[in-house]
Amino acid sequence: MRRSRDPRHIYGPNLAPMVDVVLVILIFFMASIVFVGPEWFLPAAIPAEASQSEREAADPYALPDPTLSLRVLASETGPAVSGLGAGVVPLAGFEAHAAEQLRGIDPEAINIRLSAEGGVTWQHVVTVQDVLTRLGVRNIALDAP
């Protein structure tokens, strides 16, 4: 016996809930991709020789090192930077300070050696490197013990 088909009815599974679920999954994946942002690459040298203070300890008559040694400090008021001009500058104000100190100097002729004391995070060091890179300094070295 043949089953009669009513043209007013749609036979087969209802796809509406599946479409809803699939669209929600699609939106989830699209949103999660957005959070993975693009990457930058900041070149940094790893100096082979000893630092100026180590050389001075070995030879008190050593000539001044043409490299600027910047140190990122972990002060009570937050991270700070010393070594560029006089005094210690909070990291938040380092860009303006560095721009002032490097005014009139060819930034590509400057060598900077960057070190950090305990309690300073990698982000703080990269922030200093970022500021110097934006000011045109190309020769930046990360100090290693």
Binding site: G37, P38, E39, W40, F41, L42, P43, A44, G78, P79, P90, L91, A92, G93, F94, E95, H124, V126, T127, Q129, D130, V131, R134, L142
Partner: peptide, 13 residues
């Protein structure tokens, strides 16, 4: 050094 791109210049902690 690999970093994530920040949209605007920044400073501070």
């Amino acid at each position: 050094v690999v970093a994530e791109q920040a949209m605007a210049p920044f400073g501070g902690d």
